[in-house]
């Protein structure tokens, strides 16, 4: 496998140190940064399917919502103390969500192209509609998550580090996966699934595992965000196709599909833009979001990293000839 260049390790270390110091350096923006980490998980898990595997899901928010509800239900009904219940809730959320994705995967991942996209879109919305009518989950009025047993500042700090942990684990898991046989296999599926099948690749297995990994991390994030917001609305928080659901796609494309850093970059840029400008749009944010999607998709579909890659291909290890270069590249 190609060894990661030195600057990548520097970048990771730099971001890691900054992430650990932010609560003390920028204490007033701690919630914004918590959401930044959440956005990074959104973009990364979407890109796992959309960018790396070529399966453009419009309904990954399904797993986020399942996670949010599962965690909240365990917290409500388990009768344990706050932190034990939260830990158990997150565990159940991740397990349930992964199980659902594995079950659905067998059927849904057999679809190609727009059938997959629209089917997942339907799944996400259907889940929101069902949750909105289900009394056990509070129906249309949603669920309130338990009160944090401590001060506001402590609560913010706790959830900052919780989401940072989820994001960090997710990032390194995906990074490791992309470097292994798994990463190359899902790239092959993206480039030509018929060929991959003709070569004997276990395509269904790879696709399902990819979806399960995405579902796992989305569910953890869902559990955390439900508690962070303190309230779970079926259509506007848990299964919010018009916000989180679309943002994931937009962030991944903006940063550059099919790379590990693209979604991270896209999430940062999008989140920053959103925090800076969104509040000045007074209710027109979502109109702007629609326009932004059209603009990016039509004029900038390759994303920031994709554009960089087109400009300097050799930086990404594409080169012709010479044994010397080759020897270094292929360890």
């Amino acid at each position: 496998m190609k060894r990661a260049p030195v600057y990548e390790y520097l970048l990771i270390t730099g971001i890691g140190v900054a992430a650990l110091l932010i609560p003390w350096l920028l204490p007033n923006f701690i919630t914004q940064f918590t959401f930044l980490w959440v956005m990074v998980v959104f973009a990364l898990t979407w890109d796992l399917l959309g960018g790396q595997m070529g399966y453009n899901s419009f309904g990954n928010v399904l797993f986020f919502g399942i996670g949010a509800y599962a965690c909240a239900v365990v917290q409500r009904d388990s009768g344990l103390d706050y932190f034990t219940a939260l830990a158990l809730g997150l565990l159940c959320a991740a397990l349930l969500s992964t199980a659902v994705s594995a079950l659905l995967g067998a059927g849904v991942l057999g679809m190609r192209g727009h059938y997959f996209a629209i089917c997942t879109l339907g799944l996400g919305v259907a889940a929101g509609e069902i949750a909105g009518g289900w009394e056990y989950l509070g129906a249309g009025s949603g669920m309130v998550t338990p009160q944090y047993p401590g001060g506001i500042g402590e609560r913010d700090l706790f959830y900052y580090f919780l989401s940072l942990t989820i994001t960090g684990t997710g990032f390194f898991t995906l990074r490791r996966l992309y470097q292994s046989r798994f990463g190359i296999a899902i790239n092959a599926i993206r480039d030509d699934e018929d060929k991959a099948e003709a070569m004997g690749l276990h395509t269904t297995r790879y696709k399902t595992v990819a979806w399960c990994v995405a579902a796992f991390f989305l569910a953890l994030t869902g559990g955390a965000v439900g508690n962070l917001i303190g309230f779970i609305d079926p259509r506007d928080v848990a299964f919010s196709g018009a916000t989180f659901g679309v943002w994931m796609i937009l962030m991944a494309i903006l940063g550059g599909k099919g790379t590990i850093w693209g979604p991270v970059l896209g999430a940062a840029v999008f989140h920053l833009t959103q925090e800076l400008f969104w509040n000045f749009l007074f209710g027109w944010q979502r109109v702007a979001l629609g326009a932004l999607i059209v603009l990016i998709v039509v004029f900038f579909p390759q994303g920031i990293l994709g554009w960089v890659r087109e400009a300097w291909p050799e930086r990404f290890g594409q080169c012709v000839d010479t044994d010397r270069q080759g020897g270094e590249e292929t360890r």
């Binding site: 046989r181 190359i184 790239n187 092959a188 480039d191 030509d192 991959a196």
Partner: peptide, 12 residues
Amino acid sequence: YGRMDCVHNMLI
């Protein structure tokens, strides 16, 4: 596999 380099094409 068009968007992968030749070595990866071979490995997979």
